[in-house]
Design a binder for these strands. Structure first.
Lengths: 200, 200
DNA sequence: TACATTTGCTAACAGTGTTAACTTAGGTAG
DNA sequence: CTACCTAAGTTAACACTGTTAGCAAATGTA
């Protein structure tokens, strides 16, 4: 008598139904417009049913976030396996990382808590340009100083900013037990490595 | 008859009152819990008054975002002025950038749309560790290959990940007119620069 | 004093997440 | 076969959210 089995199966069906409906909404309208009510509507069950499967809305998003990290790990592993030299591996992994992020924007944004101000907003902030111009000019000066004017300053500027922003935002969402001093060591090491890349 | 002046002044007072109350709420409870109603309550005016000064809630946040970019630009400029060599400038600017981000978390999170999943959430995702372990192992292998085992692999791993995440997230919120090919050039340049830093 | 304009308010609309309390259907035991 | 009990699913509400239409009152002008 597979009664409990059937019940389990049914419960699982609802669960996957919730996740399926939720994912569909995330992909079409962005995850900021995900709503419990709309999910309930899509799966043709009442609202509290969803709370039998997930503690709250965040738990649903957390589920996707986990999925995302798994997919990313898989992509990185595959990339790594495709070549043998570690230096080459780092390069193909970088590309795999990039491709994952832009091939799965919804996942990536969820995983790193990115994307509230809806992108369009950011482009309207002229203040950003004022700030980046300071970065750009310094990069150019550094390249001139190094007699390395062939190097594309725009490339380098993006590299510089990325290291900074990447370090900051990862530390911010990680908030691990590292000391401030150690965090700054990471920063200095990354920047000194970058500065070396400015020389010929 | 400074009647219009007085009115202007009064209007300006309300505006700064709105921003002041809003900022206070952002700092104390995080900007996700900012609400028009609570602002109205704080400034002791009714809700629609706020809509006379700002088109919507996002406009208020945009205001802070702009402020943030201005403050960051100022901090970078000051750091730059403190030393003369471009290479040194890049280092002090990096530290200034870092200090700004962590000294003004609210600004930074707003500026880069960071921080929905409330940080605590991210720490509960064990899947992250599975992913990062792949990165770490490859970094270690690369260091061994380069006979540079003294280098701290943890430092390098953070640098590597930061470049990746930084590039991705900045490109994502910028969504400028760059071609995919050019974007990948930025990526490859940054990574090849990083790989050089792994050598002795 | 009469009019016009700005200023601000009340109250509502249309949403959101979440939960208490109830009904009903399903399986179990006498 | 009936009585019971548990679990599934429902309705309806609470307490919020952003936003706006329509109205009242205060203010300055003619």
């Amino acid at each position: 008598m597979g009664i409990v089995e059937r019940k389990m199966r049914h419960k699982e069906e609802i669960r996957t139904g919730i996740l399926g409906a939720a994912w569909h909404m995330v992909v079409t309208d962005g995850w900021q417009s995900l709503s419990i009510r709309k999910i309930a509507d899509a799966i043709e069950y009442s609202i509290p049913v969803i709370y039998n499967h997930f503690e709250n809305k965040e738990a649903i998003l957390l589920e996707f976030s986990k999925e995302g990290y798994q997919k990313l790990a898989l992509a990185l592993q595959e990339a790594k396996n495709s070549v043998v030299l570690p230096a080459d591996q780092l390069e193909v992994m970088a590309i795999a990382y990039w491709d994952f992020a832009f091939g799965n924007k919804e996942y990536y944004q969820l995983m790193f808590g990115l994307g509230i101000p809806a992108c369009e907003m950011v482009n309207q902030i002229t203040e950003i340009k004022e700030m980046t111009s300071i970065l750009v000019s310094t990069i150019r000066e550094a390249l001139i100083q190094n007699k390395n004017e062939e190097a594309d300053y725009f490339l380098k500027y993006h590299g510089y900013w990325s290291i900074l922003h990447g370090l900051v935002s990862i530390q911010m969402i990680e908030n691990s037990g590292k000391t401030d001093a150690f965090k700054k060591m990471i920063l200095k090491d990354a920047i000194s490595g970058f500065c070396k890349s400015l020389a010929l």
